[in-house]
């Protein structure tokens, strides 16, 4: 008879892969992934839409999502387009993408990252306090047991992205210069 340490003890984060919002509680990283998908419904890219056959989602820095981003977006299209997920390790790597998630690990290189995407139709999203004021468009933050998000309208305007007014009503607007 074999002894079995609880599987979660070895790989705790891998135990939960369901993203169904009907569950009583979802974990923070799951909620952020679902929120990213939901947020994109309220954003319109310039010139009538997205140019590619796939929605290009990129993460720069140490991903907080493990492998879950690929798992989720394998079955959840964005704007009716299949989602390709890419990872960048350096601001110089940033190529053409539609959404860039800036990980917490990029606190030191954020300015360089934002200068690479400045005025390009790339929706920038982060989950680090203070990143919105520094120029990230959407910052997912936690308030108590719930998630909310901040929006910095300046880079949104510069990039010619458009956001739905109802969506902005739900947001905390940052950076109104």
């Amino acid at each position: 008879m074999a002894s079995k340490m609880h599987w979660a003890a070895l790989f705790p984060p891998l135990m939960v892969t369901s993203f169904c919002p009907a569950q009583s509680q979802v974990s923070e990283y799951q909620a952020k992934i679902v929120l990213i998908e939901k947020l994109t419904r309220f954003v319109e890219w310039p010139n009538g839409g997205l140019p590619g056959k796939a929605f290009r989602l990129a993460v720069i820095g140490r991903t907080p999502f493990g492998d879950a981003l690929e798992d989720y977006f394998a079955s959840h299209p964005i704007k009716n387009l299949p989602v390709s997920v890419e990872y960048y390790t350096d601001p110089g790597d940033i190529r053409s993408c539609d959404l860039l998630f800036v990980a917490h690990s990029e606190t030191g290189t954020l300015d360089a990252i934002l200068s690479r995407v400045k005025a390009r139709p790339i929706l920038t999203i982060a989950d680090t306090p203070g990143f919105t004021r520094r120029g990230v468009m959407v910052n997912i933050i936690r308030e108590g047991a719930r998630m909310t998000f901040e929006v910095n309208l300046d880079p949104v305007r510069e990039s010619n992205l458009r956001m739905h007014p109802g969506f902005l009503q739900l947001a905390r607007i940052i950076g109104h210069n």
């Binding site: 790989f11 909620a31 907080p64 719930r146």
Partner: peptide
């Protein structure tokens, strides 16, 4: 969609590690 987003934001979230391991980061 808007109601769905509002409902999602109203949903409590588990207190968990802020970062999740990649499968390949596991110690195996």
């Amino acid at each position: 969609d808007l109601k769905d987003l509002q409902a999602f934001l109203d949903q409590p979230v588990q207190t968990a590690s802020k970062r999740v391991q990649r499968l390949k980061e596991a110690a195996a």
